[in-house]
């Protein structure tokens, strides 16, 4: 096993989800998604259409040097990687065909993929996520009033209607954050996405420091699909606030390989922001 941090592993796990013909919007927060998307462009997805920088910049870093990962989503450094900078309201509008080299060689293969929705993938944070994949950025409630004011929904519900797959990301795995039902819904999961006829599918995964939940296609409830190395099923069950169903296809996440780590450390995250 290679020696790597949890953040590096996350960046690699998300990078593997990205394909060359994708469009991605990575909004605010977290260097992990900057790293994942830039890593994908520098390895297997050089044509990835990527909105960064408060999502107002279309960035391609395939042939660019990255001295340091941006610290904020709006940092001026991001302008260096940009090929276009638009009004923020444009962020939520369609920005072109799937792209990618293969799309133009084998158009038939892409008949059913995202032609008109504004992005294929989006990463959403949350102070809570529930077994339906709903996430909450609004706040916590005692049933009568808001007792904890969250940061606000930002644009995640605006992306939810049109992004193909959203990935909910919870930075600590415990019963307070992973709950039966969230107190407020800021981005809906698969059940609501289906009921309300969204173009997108809703939440594809809930990712925590311990594991990845996917969703049972019949019940649309979360189920334990992948464990990070060293984590047990019991460990997940003990720390989750809803009953944990385990997928028949449960697997352990493949740690970053040598090649992935090499590009990540030498070309994307030179200063080691993700290493600690």
């Amino acid at each position: 096993m290679t020696d790597h941090s949890w953040k590096e592993m996350m960046a690699v796990v998300f990078a593997r989800e990205i394909e060359d013909h994708h469009k991605i919007t990575s909004g605010a927060h977290t260097e992990i998604f900057f790293a994942a998307t830039m890593l994908a462009q520098k390895t297997h997805a050089p044509n990835l259409k990527l909105q960064l920088g408060g999502s107002v910049a279309l960035c391609n870093v395939t042939d660019m040097e990255i001295p340091e990962l941006p610290k904020t989503s709006t940092g001026y450094e991001i302008l260096r990687y940009a090929e276009s900078i638009h009004d923020h309201a444009d962020t939520f509008l369609f920005y072109g065909a799937p792209g990618g080299a293969d799309y133009y060689k084998n158009p038939d293969k892409y008949k059913d993929v995202n032609h008109f929705w504004f992005a294929d993938k989006f990463f959403v944070g949350g102070i809570q996520a529930d077994k339906w994949g709903n996430t909450n950025m609004i706040g916590l409630s005692d049933g009568k009033k808001m007792t904890f004011r969250g940061p606000g929904t930002i644009g995640i519900n605006d992306t939810a209607i049109g992004v193909v797959d959203q990935y909910a990301f919870i930075t600590a795995h415990d019963k307070r954050r992973l709950v039966e039902n969230v107190d407020y819904i800021s981005a809906p999961g698969q059940k609501i996405a289906r009921e309300k006829q969204f173009n997108g599918n809703g939440t594809k995964w809930i990712v925590t420091p311990k594991c990845i939940f996917d969703f049972d296609p019949d019940t649309l409830e979360a189920r334990l699909a992948q464990l990070f190395p060293g984590v047990t099923i019991e460990d997940v069950k003990e720390n989750t606030g809803f009953e944990v169903n385990v997928s028949d296809a449960l697997s352990t996440i493949e740690p970053p390989n040598k090649d992935e780590l090499e590009v990540l450390r030498n070309e994307v995250d030179k200063t080691g922001v993700l290493r600690h």
Binding site: N157, I185, S186, P188, K196
Partner: peptide
């Protein structure tokens, strides 16, 4: 008119 916010708690709040 906008679809984003449908299915969330925003219209309740």
């Amino acid at each position: 008119a906008w679809r984003g916010g449908v299915g969330t708690s925003i219209p309740e709040l």
